[in-house]
């Protein structure tokens, strides 16, 4: 009798590895960057870099500001002027609703879904939550449902200023940047932090994991994380990250600038860019459904080398579709 589930099974996960060159016309870096629309955090790591390149700071500071609208009734979002002036031209995201290419995408629990009484379809990932997409403008009865049956209110992040409409307070936010390594940030302990690259386990023949962390290795009792060969020690590194609602075009710009930096640096170094998507956004790669409740961590890492080659690793959560 099979009473219990197999405890050793884990949820499905995907890792897509791409390698190519920026000079190759088939390279898909820019299209991949475009396809993850709702980005929360970008981290840049530059090894063997004594101080942060000055233009890197200015690029991060030039990231577009975004706006926070608190407790916005959802029906006001559907106001025609507001849609025209702000929403259609912007990236809008909140925990369970987002706007992509003219569609409102909801991720709702069963009760809210039934109260709204609109057409939708059950989520693939979680039978207790339902998700549906509605094109505003179609005769869906959405506006009526949101004004009469259920007055949903949410906090929204929006990338364009809603000029035509400003009833609730709308706060302008700039992405926050933080530095670590030997850049403007001062390490808490005396002396320059040393970073070690450690090769970890790989899955396929050629691939290796490696991680970079400061030298405060744990004892064997705490951790059995061991180093695989080959291993390299990096004497210094600069790490910077920015958080907020980050637009794909800003990230594209950052990637381009880092490529230029690698060309100019005249070293055999590399640069790494890691981008995290919003955990609770209802869409994943290319506006496909994502699993909101089961740890949908969408992220990608781009490793760039001075000879224009790159490695791109894209990760997707349990029920998410494969990155395109």
């Amino acid at each position: 009798v099979k009473m219990c589930a197999d405890l050793s099974r884990t949820q499905r996960n995907l890792l897509v590895c791409e390698r190519s060159s920026f000079l190759d016309e088939k390279n898909r870096v820019s299209s991949q960057v475009e396809q993850l629309r709702f980005n929360y955090k970008v981290s840049v790591l530059l090894p063997e870099c004594g101080s942060a390149p000055s233009h890197l700071e200015s690029i991060l500071n030039s990231f577009s500001s975004f706006y926070l609208i608190k407790k916005l009734p959802l029906y006001e979002l559907l106001d025609k002027d507001f849609l025209q002036s702000a929403v259609y031209q912007a990236c809008t995201v909140c925990v369970c609703v987002c706007v992509c290419s003219g569609h409102l995408v909801f991720s709702l629990d069963k009760d809210t879904f039934e109260t709204l009484g609109l057409e939708g379809r059950p989520s693939r990932s979680n039978r207790t939550s339902s998700r549906y997409g509605i094109s505003y403008g179609s005769d869906s009865g959405l506006l009526q449902a949101l004004t009469s049956r259920l007055k949903l209110q949410m906090d929204f992040l929006i990338s364009h200023h809603p000029a035509a409409w400003s009833t609730p307070p709308c706060g302008r936010v700039t992405p926050t940047t933080s530095w670590s390594g030997s850049a403007p940030w001062t390490p808490p302990s005396a002396g320059e932090p040393r970073y070690r690259s450690r090769a970890l386990r790989g899955h396929d023949r050629e691939s290796l994991f490696f991680c970079v962390y400061s030298e405060n290795s744990s004892s064997d009792f705490l951790s059995t994380l061991t180093c695989l060969e080959p291993e390299a020690t990096v004497s210094r590194a600069v790490s910077v990250s920015a958080c907020g609602l980050l637009l794909p075009q800003d990230l594209q710009h950052l990637v381009e600038e880092l490529r230029c930096h690698l060309q100019q640096a005249q070293t055999n170094s590399w640069a790494s860019v890691t981008v995290h998507g919003f955990t609770d956004s209802p869409v994943s790669w290319d506006d496909d459904e994502r699993d909101v409740l089961t740890g949908g961590h969408d992220l990608y890492n781009l490793l760039m080398f001075p000879d224009h080659t790159y490695r791109l690793h894209l990760a997707a959560g349990a029920q998410n579709t494969c990155p395109p």
């Binding site: 994991f209 962390y213 790490s239 490695r311 690793h313």
Partner: peptide
Amino acid sequence: CDLFLYRVS
């Protein structure tokens, strides 16, 4: 913030 993991070839 000082912990990273990458897969490289």
